[in-house]
Design a protein around this nucleic acid. Structure first.
Lengths: 138, 138, 138, 138
DNA sequence: GTGGTCTAGACCACT
DNA sequence: GTGGTCTAGACCACT
């Protein structure tokens, strides 16, 4: 699992974690039965308090995405709710729209925005491959 | 001035307002001496509490971007600090990057992302022109 | 930390609190890294609303004097801005001057003023030592 | 009448004006029957809005210190309430005490405070005599 | 009308 | 427990 936190962001940390787990689960980057890192492990990896991770696991369990097996660990549920994918995409589109609006206010052109997107794609690829060799990914 | 709030967003309302005022002031959409809508007026327009708007005006005054004149109104400061523009752009780039990462996890391709961006640009243009005829803009 | 509020004063409560924290921090009564009482605690101690204290902490954080750590507490910043000391002293001198002017208008002599000052010094010493044994200090 | 406003002060302007009129009337710097400058005149002299002065005159009239004669002017009342003098002195002592406390927090010694007082007395003398020749005094 | 201060109280995020 | 955001509402100060 690959999680990356932007501590300076206005988006709450727990929300960032949940969004990323949801996205990867929805996209079947890891499927049903996949074992997530322990609360303690993930908290250490991304440098946040255990309770923050715990809350996220609890919330996602409530959504039916995760399954917590006492004394064993946390797993992607056997039948993850499919409606979440749509919700994820809608939400992402909404957030992108607002960002674009802000960018336009700052005077960025359509071309500049496309450039930034491409750069972000490239960077996200690099970071991910780098992270796989480190303890940040698990 | 054009402000648009996404109440469902994870980004706090006050942060959204501040970001948008900062962006427009930095991009000189309105320059030094521009009179902002009153606290009460803006609060009414975007449907939030007066204190929330007041809070934003205070924060931006602290940054040197705004100037409040007791009993008169709130204005864009004569010499808005320039380093804010960089901060704005860095922050926006960071948020975009994270969004792109999430989009990639959801399986969206580079092409799909560019499409979404273009759509968002078109929509933001429409909303803005619509709003100009309404009381949301001031 | 020792804070004393004069509720009847024309000077707003939040201003009184800020002035006193600034003065003590500037004079290194407590230095960098010192942990201030929590918002709730200080509010309870001096009998004002939590928001009032929060507001003060926010302002002083904006000045670079304080540092707030989410979920942890509020601390004197590692490198408190030094120009604040001058501002503090100038302001105090200005307020003293105006007070002296009023005193003179009331017919008080130079000697009487010096007496009042000495009395105030003595009283402030007593109050402080008394307070140390009470919950007003923290 | 001599009024001097410190706009940067935390003490509200109207309070400053009222305090100074009260002090001078109490100290018989001008006695019963003395005609105060018109609202418009005083407002212009000290550079504040007419309404601010108006409010002060109204308040002091309510206290029995002033007497407003419609179409004529505002005068020191024939029998100014004497209990105000004590109130004035008590209040001034209280404000001085708080200032001294702040000064002590800033690390000022007893000697330094006496020096500041003496300097303020000298300055207030100079300003007053200077002002007498200008339109600030009336 | 415009900004400023303060209270009371609810709910959220992080340690 | 500690900080953060937001609402509703009262009252004050200045133009």
């Amino acid at each position: 699992m690959f999680i990356r936190i932007e501590k300076a962001s206005a988006v709450p940390i727990s929300r960032q974690i949940a969004d990323q787990i949801r996205a990867q689960a929805m996209a079947r980057t890891f499927g049903p039965g996949y074992k997530l890192p322990s609360v303690r492990q993930l908290a250490r990896d991304i440098g946040v308090n255990q309770n923050t991770v715990l809350h996220v696991y609890e919330r996602l369990t409530g959504e039916g995405l995760l399954e917590r097996r006492h004394g064993d660990g946390t797993y992607i549920s056997d039948s993850p709710p499919t409606h979440l994918l749509d919700r994820e995409r809608d939400q992402l589109a909404g957030e992108l729209e607002q960002l674009v609006r802000r960018a336009r206010m700052l005077g960025l052109t359509r071309e500049q925005l496309h450039e930034i997107i491409d750069k972000a794609i490239t960077e996200s690829l690099q970071n991910q491959s780098t992270a796989h060799d480190q303890e940040i990914s698990s």
